[in-house]
């Protein structure tokens, strides 16, 4: 890949249109409302799931797209997610960790922490299932925030353990192949 290709790839956001005709959203909204009249529970479930996904999206894309301030403000107002910035912290930490690697022979020991991460993700799935069944409720929001706090703590732990392993790997190399931990 030459510099030109790399440059285009890195700046592809600049190729996006400045604005989109408002009628596109209006058509989407009309269609959703039309469907929601047919099935109110569909609307509630979809809305709830979209809310959860939006939080997750900010988690994954927050740092890439820098969502507009007004979206953030509205989210905070609607769902009282005053602490939703945790999601962005998680995103940053996951990105940071995805670039790190450890010697292959240490991977097995590391599974304990990775399983805990899976446990937390499973727990999150339980929350989204609850929202799908019962709609978004504040206490689930609080549990989601607690979930993020736990996740941040765990990711910090994983990071410090990787640093520890690599500190000793530099001192006394094991000659074991380096592998990514795949978070």
């Amino acid at each position: 890949m030459n510099k030109f290709e790399k440059y285009i790839q890195e700046n592809k956001q600049k190729l996006e249109p400045d604005q989109i005709d408002a009628k596109v959203w209006l058509s989407i909204e009309n269609e959703i409302l039309r469907k929601s009249k047919k099935s109110y529970s569909f609307f509630i479930k979809t809305l709830a799931a979209a809310a959860v996904i939006l939080v997750g999206t900010l988690l994954m894309y927050g740092s890439l797209f820098k969502p507009k301030q007004d979206i953030e403000a509205r989210l905070i107002e609607r769902y009282n997610l005053g602490e939703y910035k945790f999601t962005q912290q998680v995103s940053l930490k996951e990105k940071e960790l995805s670039t790190l690697s450890i010697p292959k022979d240490k991977l097995a020991d590391f599974q304990i922490l990775l399983q805990q991460l899976e446990f937390l993700n499973g727990q999150f799935q339980d929350y989204t299932d609850y929202i799908e069944q019962n709609g978004y409720q504040e206490f689930i929001g609080n549990q989601i925030i607690n979930h993020y706090k736990s996740k941040i703590k765990l990711l910090d732990k994983i990071q410090s353990e990787i640093e520890k392993i690599n500190y000793y790997e530099n001192k006394i190399p094991s000659n074991s192949e380096k592998v990514e931990i795949n978070i």
Binding site: Q115, G122, Q123, Q125, L154
Partner: peptide, 15 residues
């Protein structure tokens, strides 16, 4: 525990 997380229970005590 929720059924969705039971399979990830590898340790007796954590976090």
């Amino acid at each position: 525990l929720a059924p969705s997380v039971q399979k990830y229970m590898k340790s007796n005590s954590f976090q």
